[in-house]
Nucleic acid binder design. Structure first.
Lengths: 146, 146
DNA sequence: CATGAAAGATGAGCAAA
DNA sequence: TTTGCTCATCTTTCATG
């Protein structure tokens, strides 16, 4: 990847609401040039979106945060599982990891009922053999960026 | 929390770069009223920041993504651990979870050496008794929001 | 890079709690 | 009286060619 684009991504990850003008200053570009690069990365899917990090203790609507260890059935491929999992509501991360299980899935659910539904769907439609769910009691940091 | 603020957070989580005018339209406020509420939430720490979701396969600089299961030493409090862990470089999430371990920590490291250093620091300075690290082989989704 | 259009910030006035 | 909203205005930033 272009090192300038990479630099732009770094700035945008720190502050997604920065103006194109300031972004340009940070990376040594004109506002327009910076804006063009950002727009291009959005078009190309490199930038998936701009989001807001919210203090988990302040957001009452947050619901449950869970981490699910997943073991796939032998007849299920990683691609199949990922394709289905990506479309399920509340799933925020799907990572193929080393260790005893195949995947670690991070998800949010409004309440235990919704969580139960999510787990059921994973088993029925995503080729999941076993799942171990860990529920977040408290999130000191809650977010991907830093 | 104010239901309007909560609604604003919902919109901002979907698109952190939305204009205050459009944000106002979405929640039934004027641009200024919406902007004031956002600024207030930033001041109060409810909004921790605005960030950008990047396609993990496109970001070459990403390095290693790891999930670390942590068991604390009996003489370490959650507060102590969190206080130290929050300041370590690369740690993107610190969550107190149910199950056999105390915490699940999500982190990025530039390379195995940096990962090793991070684990060493956790043991030495954060009161960690045991850690089990799972390394991401592939991240289908990489990000917290949806 | 210039230009019209959009968005952001600021202050005055007003209404409701 | 305090808080929160709107409106008007001025400045900055954005998008297009």
């Amino acid at each position: 990847m272009d090192p300038l684009d990479s630099e732009i991504l770094g700035v945008l990850r720190e502050d997604a609401r920065i103006s194109y003008r300031d972004l340009g200053v940070r990376v040594g570009l004109s506002a327009n040039a910076a804006a063009d690069r950002v727009r291009k990365m959005v078009r190309d899917g490199v930038i998936r979106g701009f989001t807001t990090l919210i203090d988990p203790t302040a957001d009452s609507r947050a619901g449950l945060l869970v981490f699910i260890d997943i073991t796939l059935r032998p007849d299920t491929t990683n691609e199949e599982f990922e394709r289905v999992a990506l479309r399920l509501p509340g799933i925020t991360e799907v990572v193929h990891v080393t260790g005893a299980h195949d995947y670690l899935v991070r998800a949010r659910a409004a309440d235990p009922t919704a969580l139960n539904a999510l787990l059921g769907t994973l088993k029925r439609e995503a080729g999941v053999a076993q799942s171990h769910t860990r529920i977040a009691l408290r999130a000191a940091i809650d977010g991907p960026t830093r």
